[in-house]
Design a protein around this nucleic acid. Structure first.
Lengths: 217, 217
DNA sequence: GTCTATAGATTGATAGAC
DNA sequence: GTCTATCAATCTATAGAC
């Protein structure tokens, strides 16, 4: 299988290429997350997706370009989640929805979160421009919204910047430090624990800025 | 200078060895923090402390043993900070003191925090035993204390475990994601910003569990 | 104890058959 | 497009002079 279009899926050349690229990107994301950029080897990524090492270089010319594509894909997912912070909603709805979505991301995209954390910890050599443009603009608009809530007396007066960092830190911790959490928990969090953790985080942060959190249901 | 005891400091052989070891460990901590274990090279560490590469192997037989010593030193500092969570104090005093101390650590030991985060993100290959013994015991005693506060009606009923994670996440974020914070802030946080961030974190977390936070002064 | 030179192993990347 | 074989560069670690 591979050359003709008689397989299970349509399989035009473009579709096959996209499929193989995704296979490699998924494997690369996991290996980069677990070993960092410097610790990851092309061989390890090749093994993780069952392809010869040379094929990786056929689809992505070199290690750095492959890494860059992995990081860019993660940033796209992050941007989607960022959209769940609706600027027109009331603070309790907007924040609860955003925190819940970020917790869900930590659960479903653990590797992506780790790659992002690694990248930032190492000085963001690849995504510095994203930090300075897209992330900065997004952050500033949300800070303005939060400041509006404060001016309207909807939440307590706190520096909106530190609140944003608190939300990012708390939610992403469940992905980046998953190994520590699972060690202390004797295994992965189950469905009920994820719900409880999410509700607890929402509760602490909302009450922390003077909002009575509604029900989590 | 170096062989005789006529230098500025006493300089017995043992003292000189300790001094050189600390020089190497400091450089190693910074390089490991910025590049990860796999990305760091012995040459980069040697350059960072102005010593020939061979000397590193004289003091620490190989890269992994050097890394292990770096991580162990960080764990010692973490344990000291852990002691500031006094089990006999009232919740507001105990938590405020612990959070403040953790924020101070993030400011003064950024590299150590990053190395720890890296180690945990990569599955804690070196410090897994510490997680399972020392950290676990410490966490369980504090969870019991927090549960006691809940039973006595001093704080709102929340799962103490998620509260601990929230404290760790929020405070360590200021070290691990310092680069992102500084990018969004147009430079390092100044004294006033550190104080404000610390006070905000204390305020959100204490109010979040139903305590009226006292003054930060 | 300190340093230079180098061995030995690993890795990113490519050439070339199929 | 896929795979095997291999080159060139880099890195850990050590040998051996001082």
């Amino acid at each position: 299988m591979g050359q003709t279009e008689g397989g299970e899926k349509p399989g035009t050349r473009a579709e096959m290429r996209e499929e193989t690229e995704r296979l490699i990107l998924d494997a690369a994301e996991e290996v980069f997350a677990e070993s960092g950029f410097g610790g990851a080897t092309m061989q390890a990524i090749a093994d993780a997706c069952g392809l010869p090492k040379a094929n990786l270089h056929y689809y992505f010319s070199n290690k750095e370009k492959l890494y860059r594509r992995v990081v860019e894909r993660i940033f796209t997912i992050w941007l989607e989640a960022a959209g769940s912070f609706e600027t027109s909603a009331t603070p309790d709805v907007a924040l609860r929805r955003y925190i819940t979505r970020k917790m869900q991301l930590s659960r479903e995209h653990r590797f992506g979160s780790k790659v992002w954390a690694n990248e930032v910890m190492h000085g963001a050599p690849i995504i510095q421009d994203y930090l300075e443009t897209t992330l900065r603009r997004w952050t500033e608009t949300r800070i303005a919204v939060i400041q509006g809530w404060i001016d309207a007396g909807h939440i307590r007066p706190i520096n909106p910047r530190w609140l944003m960092y608190t939300i990012w830190a708390t939610t992403q911790h469940y992905a980046d430090f998953a190994h520590q959490i699972e060690t202390l928990n004797d295994g992965p969090l189950d469905e009920a624990q994820w719900q409880d953790a999410t509700e607890t985080v929402c509760g602490i942060l909302l009450r922390g800025i003077g909002i009575d959190p509604g029900t989590g249901a």
